[in-house]
Design a protein around this nucleic acid. Structure first.
Length: 245
DNA sequence: ACATTCTTTCCTGATT
DNA sequence: CAATCAGGAAAGAATG
């Protein structure tokens, strides 16, 4: 298992400034096949993939300060100005692997014939105590690990996952990051389900969204029921992995 | 235990 | 008139 303090940077050093998430993701599907040798199935002989393997392993959590700090200290952040976007991209992709590929690789029979809800419950029980997360250093915003999904991330994932969306929200202008709430009641209901809060409604939800204006995660736009992702929001752009899945 | 951040709840008033 | 927007205020939840 790779800890951040021992992260090899061979792959990072081969990154180029024009590497985008799409290109990165074309490499990712090759990773799970080598996840058989160590605790998380990571093949230590595959020297070109340790960094990605770490990012896609259960140890990595979005916004991991150690990874970011390492990227800063080694100059990778300068080489890749969109480094944090790449992290977000890989993290989202990793979630899919966690849910599907990884589970099936370890226990090929457990996911057969189990309904989705049951599967998620079993998954939660199995993974949470067994897969320790890297604990971040205290002090900075960046260090927060997201065990619970933030509202804006939930909205972003809805937009990127039509099968979950139920037509509650849709892109208004994908390139600009503007989106429109189509069914406000459904939108609030979905968020309420996420937070296990039956009392959620669009009025409360929209208040929470308006709080994001100040932090730059969302920006105000004209028009009712219309919002726009701000500079602090990431992972919603065209090369997001959700578009590929 | 405490500080910080994020979210919820409630509210008043304005706008569509 | 109903739905929505804009924020203030305060409390609760999550997290380090």
């Amino acid at each position: 298992m790779y800890h951040s303090s021992a992260l090899p940077l061979t792959l990072l050093s081969s990154f180029t400034a024009d590497l985008n998430s799409q290109a990165l993701l074309t490499e990712l599907p090759t990773i799970p096949s080598s996840w058989d040798c160590s605790e998380y199935g990571y093949d230590v002989n595959d020297i070109d993939l340790p960094f990605l393997a770490y990012l896609t392993s259960p140890d990595y959590s979005s916004g991991d300060s150690d990874v970011c700090n390492l990227a800063d200290s080694t100059g990778v952040s300068e080489t890749l100005p969109h480094f944090t976007d790449l992290l977000a991209t890989v993290t989202t992709h990793r979630k899919n692997l966690d849910e599907q590929v990884l589970q099936e690789k370890r226990n090929p029979h457990t996911s057969v014939g189990v309904c989705k809800e049951e599967k998620e419950k079993v998954q939660e029980k199995k993974t949470s105590p067994v897969t320790p997360r890297v604990h971040n250093r205290r002090g900075t915003k960046r260090n927060r690990t997201h065990q619970s999904v933030h509202l804006w991330e939930f909205v972003r994932d809805l937009l990127l996952s039509p099968h979950k969306n139920q037509n509650a929200v849709r892109w208004e202008n994908r390139k600009e990051g503007t989106f429109r709430v189509v069914k406000s009641d459904m939108f609030a209901q979905l968020w309420g389900e996420q937070k296990k809060n039956k009392c959620m409604n669009y009025e409360k939800l929209s208040r929470a969204l308006r709080h994001y204006y100040k932090s730059g995660i969302l920006e105000r736009v004209d028009g009712r029921l219309t919002y726009k992702f701000g500079k602090k929001a990431h992972g919603w752009r065209e090369d997001s992995p959700k578009q590929l899945t």
